[in-house]
């Protein structure tokens, strides 16, 4: 402690990869979450090439069959393979949620940073606008946006992004606000940085660890939201495989005993949301340099 000249050689774990490995090893839950994420990403990228049946191909002779070795998740009322449809749908659902979250992350960060750093009337106006968005029941707002703009995948993404912006903006605003007069921000000004650079380069990155928790939770919500919109008929249109539509279509057959139509896409939806919710803490630890000790 007293001797300041002692130096230690760089240890294993100082590199980014070593750090990620440490975070994963330290917490089995994070490990599980990352393994499940890898599985879903694998499904999204390679799924359409690997599935045993064409997800759109109908086969009237084998309609409404229970799960078997031929059809793991059974078949639907048109004889389509439920397993193939569930796997192929992963790509669409993940795309919607990732795109929506990325959009709200960027817009929310910019708005929140500005409000948190400069404060004053910009902050007041922005906060009231965000309050207005949050005053709506968010799903109803998303329904309204899709209904007004039209029933396309892009519009589902926009609607999901809009309802998530306030969460990011508020989080970033609070994180930036507590750091705007921090010593390192002032030191950056003395080093010749303009306000904008101080904000973007020095203050904003410090907001990333809590943002990562928000991102992963939001990815889960965004999937649910997209599936929800499709479920009520606003969103992806049949016959495109999508978990929400499949649950909606399958719901009609539950009464008559064909449970596999709704249960398997529902299960996949649940697992995806579960994965993203578990992912949060791990992602935060990875982007936080203070965890590297």
């Amino acid at each position: 402690m007293v001797d300041m000249t002692t130096s230690q050689p760089a240890r294993k774990g100082d590199t980014t990869l070593g750090h990620i490995a440490y975070v994963l090893k330290d917490n089995p839950v994070t490990m599980l979450a990352f393994a499940m994420l890898a599985f879903f990403l694998g499904c999204a990228v390679f799924g359409p090439a690997l599935v045993p049946y064409d997800p759109l191909a109908t086969n009237a002779s084998r309609a409404l069959e229970a799960p078997s070795w031929d059809h793991w998740f059974g078949t639907d009322n048109l004889g389509r393979d439920v397993f193939s449809r569930v796997i192929v749908a992963t790509r669409l659902d993940l795309t919607i949620s990732v795109a929506a979250v990325a959009l709200s992350f960027v817009i929310g960060s910019v708005l929140g940073s500005i409000a948190g750093y400069w404060g004053g009337w910009i902050d007041a106006v922005l906060n009231r606008c965000l309050d207005t968005i949050m005053a709506f029941p968010l799903f109803v707002l998303a329904m309204g946006v899709v209904a007004a703009l039209g029933n396309t995948v892009e519009n589902i993404i926009y609607a999901t992004a809009i309802i998530n912006i306030p969460f990011y903006a508020r989080l970033v605003r609070a994180e930036v606000n507590i750091r705007r007069n921090a010593g390192f921000a002032q030191a950056a000004k003395l080093a010749g940085n303009s306000d904008l650079r101080v904000l973007a380069v020095h203050i904003f990155p410090n907001a990333l660890p809590p943002m990562m928790v928000q991102v992963s939770l939001n990815l889960g919500w965004a999937i649910l939201n997209a599936a929800g919109l499709s479920f009520i008929g606003l969103g992806v249109r049949p016959p495109t495989p999508e978990w929400g539509i499949m649950v909606a279509e399958g719901a009609n057959f539950i009464v008559s005993g064909e449970w596999w139509l709704a249960v398997f896409p529902g299960l996949w939806l649940m697992l995806a949301v579960f994965t993203f919710n578990l992912l949060g803490d791990g992602l935060r630890d990875i982007v936080d340099p203070r965890k590297r000790t």
Binding site: A182, G183, F184, A187, L190, N206, P289
Partner: peptide, 16 residues
């Protein structure tokens, strides 16, 4: 004109 700040911890960006 430069300055050395009071709290050395606070004056260094935790991410740098």
């Amino acid at each position: 004109i430069q300055m050395v700040f009071q709290d050395a911890t606070d004056s260094l960006n935790p991410r740098g």
